[in-house]
Write a protein that binds this DNA or RNA. Structure first.
Length: 1004
RNA sequence: UGGCCUGUAGCUCAGGUGGUUAGAGCACACGCCUGAUAAGCGUGAGGUCAGUGGUUCGAGUCCACUUAGGCCAACCA
């Protein structure tokens, strides 16, 4: 650095040339003020009827339909709603700009419990009792409640920038929708897929209603526990007799030793299987005892016990070995002995009698193997009352076929009624009560215990404090009780295939994003039991069928010959009055008249449909009936929880009726976690609310978060994450702003591709590459790919490279400069493409930028298509060449950084490095280029010779050496470059020749 | 407890069929510029790829287990 002279700084400050430069000029603010700006843009879109214009401009194009999974019309939006709707909007907007008619019709799910609750709550506040309100009045209030929230949520969705037919959304409570939903159910009835069965449900005696799992909370509760003997009745299972089995067993064991043989000879006859339960009142409902094949059992004999004890000396009990001692302790048994092992095989062959045989419970009680049995607590045997427990029910149903073949009646009784009283299905206890109106323990437990004691079947009793289900509302305990329900067969063949077959086939022909969704949905369909459709509720679409109480025949149904007439009558009524028609006075006569001889034989089903059937039918009443949509949908998108929900019910509904899925593809998103990766919750105070983000930063920031995240998995959100999205946003905005300012000087001149400088061609190539990436990202619903591609391009290729280099030509070159014209043309192309690609991601900002450049009424970037990239822009050879140029450039900037650190230079324009390119290929890449311009130095010297000792080299082994030197000459007062030529034009002594020419053109 | 899924720098993400010192952007630190200025440019420091064990000449990439977390289902009879 010694041979060169320092730039002359003595020259007196001449004039301010900045006014002669083409500096960026723009009103586009650096700071967005999105929270204020976004509502203005929304108002403009409203005013210009953007949605309508979108439909008009895309009329006749191929349709792309994302069918909206309806949110529940209740409550303000949370972050999950925002994620969901923004993702949907990214899809519909990007498809629209890809050239489809991509129409989005939002919908709402309106029926169901939560709304019924809210209305009920309002009643209670007013001191009204739900049961005294006529059902259709309740339904009217539910409808109004839903309507209110639809309005609120619609506004909140729109504020997120979601575009769609918000003026005509669909709802499940429209009269038309209700008519279709009811009609769909009829199709299941007519085709013989619907049947009446029964199932135990959670029931609140206090509220006289069935409760969903979500309505139940587990609280501590003091239960009466009892240990009860089930006498082995010496019945034999299968073809072998009891004695045969014992003798066979003895023969096997005699091989082990004579003692064992003797021990195992002892018969189980007269012994008892002992169960333990916390619900004595379920004993009348007992139909079986469950055991586990994994538990070791033994036959025990009581050898010492108090005189007045329930368990007497000589009693022989079968118990799990792990629990026997505890049971005897509880039973106050002083001493006992283990007589022998009882195998699972033996257990499977015995039958017991009911402990209350003496009261008329004379049926056999079979032993059932079940995985739910453990030997942690109890006795190792589980009292099984299919009327009163989910697992009891399941075990019973799993064995139903086998039990029937053994001559056991598998009918599930109804021992407890709506009010908690025993029925005639509980002989000897009729009128006793399990729970009172107030939710307190009734007299049932004590009656059962007394009866058991009287029958000599009690082993012990106790109390246990444990968690027990309580009603969410009344905080009172609930019970499980068998109730009649309506089901759809999963495994009954209809036209050769079962519903399960059809659903599985449909899953195989559906695309899943991510692919794991397919396995998940598949395994659910493979394993699920029959579909329970009925709910004992008020706010929903009724199962609008009649049942013959004598014969069980259904109307409509396979045996009824005027199904179409019935369906037509129902449809007409529901379309006119809604499903309320079913609950109005005289409905039975109205719908049945003319179809049956004796109306008294027919009962009107008052159950309503599970809301999943409602939403599972949206494809019927939305996609099939709106001419602006199509069936099946291209895509359904929801959270991954909807494998169990909407994807599932839509699949079953459509397969049952149409034989195929209502969608071609399923996209799922994960759940949004707090910043630490844990679940958000009110109590932890780590919630992020979309309303807050919008208020503080704007919807575009929230959208950027959605676009940057890997939504297939769970995502995180929090202050830090939102901040970094704001940073990314600011970078994008400023780059756009610079383009807008620069393009103020662009007169629209198109420069032919062939006339463009290499640098411009290289940028267009990169733009073409990015375009492929962006569109591919959008096509595969991989938005982070589109976003990252655009963001990286703007940061790395444009802001830090192309724009930085071209500022000199754009600001300083004469108006006539070809280079400048070419650059302006390319910047215009860049702006056009980038803003369009960004439009689905940040619709507000993209629109703001678009309008700044293309002002006018009725103008919107959202009416545009993604740019068609000319094939000639793709130029991989040139791109490869410029990769080499950049490689050499990196060596130069690296060298300059040292100079800067050593305070020998400040601006790179103060430098004039000597560059020794020791690789012919790299050297050739620089041929014909103004490498000083590319490195933003004032001068540069490039040679192919070996670099001298001490030259700067990159650590990565790039064969380039750089010897930094200071630029020679005077600093041009206009362009700030340091050149020897400065001063050679007498008319403009303080500027370079290029700048002199520019000034001359300006006539200055 | 079962089904499905996830864990790569402080943050968000890349890392075809296993193969040279694991990448990018942002944030951070330092410096430059002051004609994108509550902006722009450059350089740098950050990773035992959740952990352990295995398969292999070789594993972020394959297998098993463990651990942390998520969704769904179940659950104390």
């Amino acid at each position: 650095m010694t041979e060169t002279s320092a730039p002359s700084s003595e020259a007196a400050p001449t004039r301010d040339y900045s006014a002669t430069l083409n500096l960026p000029e723009t009103e586009f603010p650096m700071r967005a003020g999105l929270p204020q700006k976004e509502p203005q843009l929304l108002a403009r879109w409203d005013e210009m009827q953007l949605y309508k214009r979108l439909r008009e401009t895309s009329k006749g194009r191929e349709k792309f339909v994302l069918h909206d999974g309806p949110p529940y019309a209740n409550g303000h939006l949370h972050i999950g709603h925002a994620l969901n709707k923004i993702l949907k909007d990214l899809i519909t907007r990007s498809r629209q700009m890809m050239g489809y008619d991509s129409n989005y019709v939002p919908g709402w799910d309106c029926h169901g419990l939560p709304i019924e609750w809210k209305v009920e709550e309002e009643y209670r506040a007013k001191g009204k009792n739900k049961d005294e309100v006529p059902i259709n009045e309740l339904r009217r209030e539910c409808r109004a409640y839903a309507q209110k929230w639809i309005g609120i949520q619609a506004e909140e969705f729109r504020r997120l920038g979601v575009e769609g037919d918000f003026a005509n959304p669909y709802t499940t409570m429209d009269f038309f929708s209700e008519a279709v939903i009811a009609g769909e159910l009829l199709k299941f009835a007519v085709s013989g897929q619907l049947y009446r069965g029964s199932k135990p449900v959670m029931w609140s005696v206090v509220e006289k209603t069935a409760l969903a799992e979500a309505e139940v909370e587990y609280q501590d509760y003091q239960s009466d526990t009892i240990w009860v003997k089930f006498p082995v009745t010496r019945e034999f299972g299968g073809n072998t007799t009891w004695l045969d089995r014992i003798q066979e067993r003895s023969r096997q064991l005699s091989k082990i030793g004579p003692d064992a043989a003797i021990e195992h000879n002892e018969s189980l006859a007269g012994a008892s299987v002992v169960i333990w339960t916390t619900t004595p009142w379920t004993i009348p409902g007992n139909r079986a005892v469950s055991y586990s094949k994994k538990i070791a059992y033994g036959l025990y004999k009581v050898t010492e016990a108090p005189e007045d004890n329930w368990v007497k000396v000589g009693d022989r009990l079968i118990l799990a070995d792990a629990l026997a001692e505890g049971v005897f302790k509880q039973a106050k048994v002083v001493a006992f002995e283990r007589r022998r092992t009882v195998t699972a095989e033996e257990l499977s062959s015995i039958r017991c009698g009911h402990p209350l045989q003496n009261l008329g419970y004379t049926f056999d009680v079979p032993m059932l193997a079940g995985d739910h049995v453990t030997d942690d607590t109890g006795t190792g045997f589980v009292h099984t009352a299919p009327s009163h427990g989910r697992e009891d029910f399941e075990v019973w149903m799993d064995h139903a076929h086998e039990l029937t073949s053994r001559g056991i009646d598998t009918t599930i009784p109804f021992p407890v009624d709506d009010d908690g009283f025993y029925t005639k299905d509980a002989p000897g206890f009729e009128g006793k009560r399990v729970l009172t109106d107030k939710g307190e323990k009734g007299d049932a437990n004590q009656a059962v215990i007394d009866a058991l004691a009287a029958a000599g079947r009690m082993v012990a009793r106790g109390r246990l404090k444990h968690t027990y289900p309580h009603s969410w509302r009344s905080k009172k305990p609930v019970i499980f009780r068998n109730t009649p329900q309506w089901f759809v067969y999963m495994d009954r063949s209809v036209d050769g295939l079962t519903l399960r077959d059809k659903a599985l086939a449909a899953i195989d022909s559906t695309d899943f994003y991510p692919p794991a969704g397919q396995t998940r949905l598949r395994s659910m369909i493979e394993n699920r039991p029959d579909w329970v459709l009925s709910r004992q509720r008020a706010w929903g679409v009724p199962i609008a069928v009649f049942r013959n109480v004598e014969t069980g025949q259904l109307l409509p149904g396979p045996q009824f010959d005027r199904n179409d007439d019935y369906a037509a009558r129902l449809k007409e009524a529901f379309e006119a009055e809604g499903a309320d028609a079913w609950f109005a006075d005289g409905a039975k006569e109205r719908f049945l008249a003319g179809f049956v001889d004796n109306m008294d034989h027919w009962e009107q089903v008052r159950d309503i449909l599970d809301v999943w059937f409602d939403s599972g039918s949206t494809h019927e009443f939305v996609l099939k009936h709106r001419p602006d949509l199509k069936w099946p949908a291209d895509v359904y998108l929801e959270g991954s929880d909807q494998h169990r929900g909407w994807f599932h019910s839509s699949l079953l509904e459509s397969c049952g009726v149409n034989g195929r899925a209502p969608y071609n593809a399923v996209v799922t998103h994960g759940f949004t976690m707090a910043e630490d990766g844990r679940k958000m919750s009110k109590s932890l105070g780590n919630q992020v609310l979309p309303q807050d983000v919008i208020k503080q930063s704007g919807a575009d920031i929230l959208r950027l978060w959605v676009a940057s995240t890997d939504y297939w998995e769970d995502q995180r959100i929090g202050k830090k994450i939102l901040d970094s999205n704001s940073d990314a946003y600011r970078k994008i905005r400023n780059t756009i702003r610079w383009m807008l300012g620069t393009l103020k000087h662009y007169d629209g001149t198109v420069v032919a591709y062939a006339d463009l400088p290499e640098l411009e061609k290289a940028m267009l190539h990169k733009l073409a590459e990015v375009g492929v990436d962006v569109v591919e990202g959008y096509t595969t619903y991989d938005f982070k790919r589109s976003f990252a591609s655009v963001l990286n391009f703007m940061n790395i290729d444009l802001s830090a490279f192309y724009f930085d280099i071209r500022k000199d030509a754009l600001y300083c070159d004469p108006k006539s400069s070809i280079k400048r014209k070419a650059s302006l043309y390319v910047v215009a192309q860049l702006f056009d493409a980038l803003v369009k690609w960004l439009a689905p991601l940040i619709p507000f900002t993209a629109e703001e930028a678009w309008l700044d450049r293309n002002p006018g009424e009725g103008v919107s970037v959202h009416l545009e298509l993604f740019p068609a990239i000319p094939a000639e822009w793709t130029n991989p050879d040139l791109a490869a060449k410029w990769d080499k140029v950049k490689k050499v450039r990196r060596a130069v900037t690296g060298a300059l950084e040292i100079e800067r650190r050593e305070k020998r230079i400040g601006s790179s324009l103060e430098a004039a490095p000597a560059v020794y390119v020791e690789d012919a290929d790299l050297l050739a890449a620089l041929d014909g280029l103004d490498f000083a311009e590319i490195c933003i130095t004032s001068q540069i010297e490039v040679t192919g010779s070996a670099s001298p000792e001490g030259a700067f080299r990159l650590e990565d082994g790039t064969p380039v050496g750089v010897v930094p030197k200071l630029a020679v000459g005077k600093k041009c007062a206009r362009s700030w470059r340091i050149l020897p030529e400065v001063g050679t034009d007498p008319a403009y002594p303080d500027v370079s020749l290029r700048d002199a020419a520019a000034l001359r053109e300006l006539g200055l």
